[in-house]
Structures are given as C-alpha cells and as structure tokens.
Nucleic acid binder design. Structure first.
Lengths: 241, 241
DNA sequence: AATGTGTCAGTGGACGGACCAATCCACGCT
DNA sequence: AGCGTGGATTGGTCCGTCCACTGACACATT
C-alpha cells in the first residue's frame, strides 16, 4: 500500500521561471544577501543557474513586479525586501488547505468595507448595488443561483468603501470566494435567503448605518462560510516551511 | 517655444513589460474578452503590439504569476479574471497619495492579527516577541530609534496570528509601513513611548486576552498614524479611473 | 456507423547570439 | 587634487531557431 497511487500522472509539470523564482529565493538565503545588496549580473546568474538569460529575465520581471527586487538599467539587480521572497497571494489562495484562512480574511475585509461603505457610498454606488439586486432577483425568479448578481453586489460594496488598497486585496481572494459562493448558493433555498440578506445589507448602507451594515454583512458571510467549511476536508500530511 | 522643455531628462523610463501589462489590460477591455476566453497567439500579440516575443513573454509571466491569465503549453493563453487586471499591490502602495488608505488597511489587519495572536500564539511566538522587545530596549538605550526591533516585534505578532493569507497581505504593505515607522520614531521621545506601547501589546498577548491585545495594538497604531498623516501632503490633481 | 489511431498544423517553452543603452570606474589630463 | 573622458560592465530588446505539447482532422480498423 505504499506504492505511488498515480503512476501515470502527466510528468513533472513545471514552469521554468517559477523554479527560478524559488531558486533565487534560496540564493538570497544561502548567501545571506541583505536588503539593498546587489545580485550577480544577469549573464552570470543565468550561467550559474544553467538557463538562458531570457528565462531568467522572466523570473526577474515577476520578482520586480512583486516588489522584491529592483532592476536598474546599467546598474544591476538589487534586493528590496526578502520577507516572503517569491510568495504570491494567488498561489497561497489556490491551496484548498487555506480555505479557513481565506474565509477569515474575507470576513475581516468585507465586514469593514461594508461599514465604510455605509459612510462613504455615493449615489453611483447605491445605483450599482440596486442594479445588482435587480439582477439577482431576476436570476432567482428564473430558478437560477444568482451568482452573477451576488458577485456584482459585493463588488459594488467594495468600491463604495473607497479604499483601493483593501479593494485590491479582496480582488486577490476573488477566485476562492467565487467557489464558496457557488457551493453555498447550490444549497436548497439558499438563493432566496441570500437575496434577503443582501437586501438587509443594502438597507443599512443606504441608511448610512455603519454598525448595522457591518452586522448584516457578517451574518451573511457566516452563513456562506458554514456551508463551505462543512464540505471542506482538511488535507492530511501537508508539510511546508 | 514649442520644443521639448526638458530635452535631456532620463527619457521616459519605462519597463517595456510594464507597458505591455497595461496594453494587454486595455486589450481585454476593448475586445470585451470574457473570463475563460483565449488570447491571440503569442507571436501574433507580439507583432500587433510591436514588440519581440521575449518582451511579451516577460509581461505574460508577470500576469500569470499574478493569477490574471493561465498559459497552457501547446494550448494558448487564457483569461482567468479581468477584475483589476494588471494591478499590483506593490505599485498601489508606492503612491504616497494612498497613505491614508494604507494606514486604514494596516490598522484593520494588524489589530485583528494581534487579537488572533492572543488566542493562537505558541511558546515560540512569545519567545520571538520577547527577543524583539529586548532588541528594541538595547537600541533605545543606545539612543537609537529601535526600528529593527519594532519591525521584528510586529512580524512576530503577525506570525502568531496563524493566518498565512493575512500575513502575506500585510507583508505587501511592508514598504509603506517601514517609512511611517521611521517618521514616527524620529519624533522626540517617541522611541521610549513606543517601547512601552509594545510591552502593553505583548502583555495582552501573553495573557491570552484578545480584546486587550486588540485595544493596545489599535492605540499604538493610531499614534503612529497621527505622525504620518500630519506630515502627509495630499497631492493635487490626481485623476484616475 | 462507431471507434481507435496516426499525422500534422498551431501554439507555448527555451535557447543563443547580437546589438543598443545606461551606468560605472579607472585612467590620464590639467 | 580635481576633473573629464572613454572603455568595461550591466541591463534592455530583438531575432531566429528548435523543441514539446495540444487538439483536430483524416484515415484505417472493427
């Protein structure tokens, strides 16, 4: 029973530039490279890593976009920060193992955003929310799940909170949230209940009542989380640094 | 007088791949590309954008690492999500214009993390915090600012909160936070006061008292924010979508 | 007709080399 | 010593080539 259960899996799929990102991370640690210090030249790095400069530059582009390194034309490649080198939210979120953490983060962010929305929402925001609710009603009336309207409503709330940083962070969780949304709304009678919950959230925001908006959003998310966590199986034997 | 007024400025320095990320975002909008749809082949995209395939592939690597697209070997490039296409937290944070938003996000995250830490912290976490406090004491006693110890302490709290997703998000704000930290601690007598504030936070976490931990952290951050916002000049004429 | 199989055009993956552009630095001039 | 200049270093971009994977189509088999 100790044999590999999937002997015919599609072979070690790997993106070279992803490996390089990790290898570069190891390099930072091994050489104890400090923040502000310079990496070896691209050509040397490429040679030492046994890859072409083009591939290496893909990895560097990713790391630069991520803010981990700074690349100066004619100057060199410099380390900006080493904490969490190469870590990307998108990858973190994709691991089903992190569902509880994602839900915890979601509740924190979204409840606050609803609270802020109750204070900062403008007419355009309210209009967007009304539109989303209308869309949801139509979908539910046609025995649909109403996922599209649901997503649109939450997005409208996020925008109404008027904090681009928080909005961006929540966008990063979009994938994982989308899945839980579908799971939850597939539950019998959930779409109708969900519609009502969204109406309560909207009322509070429209009435400029932050505490009520926060409470309504929290209650709504708890419902969704319960379904998601119920179906969630904690994976075994996950080891990581 | 219609000539270029700054003929010798370092030229509009732009990373080609960054432009491409934006141009690809425009492409998604212009062509109304839907989630799941396929992009034109790399070779065609490169030609139409007037760049080499190598440069295009740098942009694609960034977008893939960000989770916006999926690249299948032999299959093509597919759109995974369009919301916030090409937006990177790191860039968002660098704009000084967003300081209030960053601080708002920081308080939300860090207060919660302190609260969680009060419940979930293990012995190793407490040891790390003690170490950071000791480091801070030494620095302050030597008339230093104590930034290193400060950063180490907060990092220890983040880890103690046992939520990798939230931890990762706060890491993304690290740059901006680091600046405000220095500004704040440069204020006369702040290092000493800050040390005391950190001790209060630690006591609460060690005593497993979530509400007190949250309150202590909130009070501490408000102090820091005040200094930062006082020195902050809201930029004029910033327009964006 | 249904099914399996081979082929092949299309597409991403990676490489090496070439040349340009910005920066850095050592050398020589004043 | 101070300064300017030019070469060496290093990143920026492009091109052409070849490999590996995918999917669809034509063909053979049953």
């Amino acid at each position: 029973m100790t044999v590999d259960t999937s002997p015919l899996r599609p072979l070690g799929r790997t993106r070279l530039y992803e490996d390089l990102v990790e290898r570069l991370g190891e390099f930072v640690i091994r050489t104890n490279l400090e923040v502000g210090a310079r990496f070896p030249p691209e050509r040397e790095l490429a040679t030492r890593l046994g890859v072409s400069r083009a591939s290496l530059r893909q990895a560097l582009a990713v790391l630069e976009a991520q803010g981990f390194i700074e690349v100066r034309h004619g100057g060199g490649v410099f380390l900006r920060r080493s904490r969490g080198f190469g870590g990307v939210l998108h990858k973190l979120v994709e691991r089903r193992a992190r569902l509880p953490e994602v839900l915890e983060a979601r509740e924190l962010l979204e409840v606050r955003l609803a609270e802020l929305a109750a204070t900062r929402r403008g007419d355009a925001d309210l209009a967007a929310m009304r539109g989303a609710l209308t869309e949801m009603e139509a979908e539910v009336a046609a025995n649909g799940l109403g996922v599209a309207g649901d997503a649109a409503f939450h997005h409208a709330v996020h925008r109404a909170g008027k904090n681009r940083v928080l909005e961006h962070v929540i966008d990063g969780l979009a994938d994982a949230i989308h899945e839980t949304r579908i799971e939850s709304l597939s539950e019998p009678d959930r779409p109708r209940a969900s519609l009502a919950a969204h109406r309560r959230i909207f009322d509070a925001i429209e009435s400029a009542d932050p505490p009520r908006a926060a409470a309504a959003m929290r209650a709504h998310l708890r419902q969704v989380s319960d379904v998601a966590l119920l179906r969630w199986q904690p994976p075994v034997g996950e080891m990581e640094g």
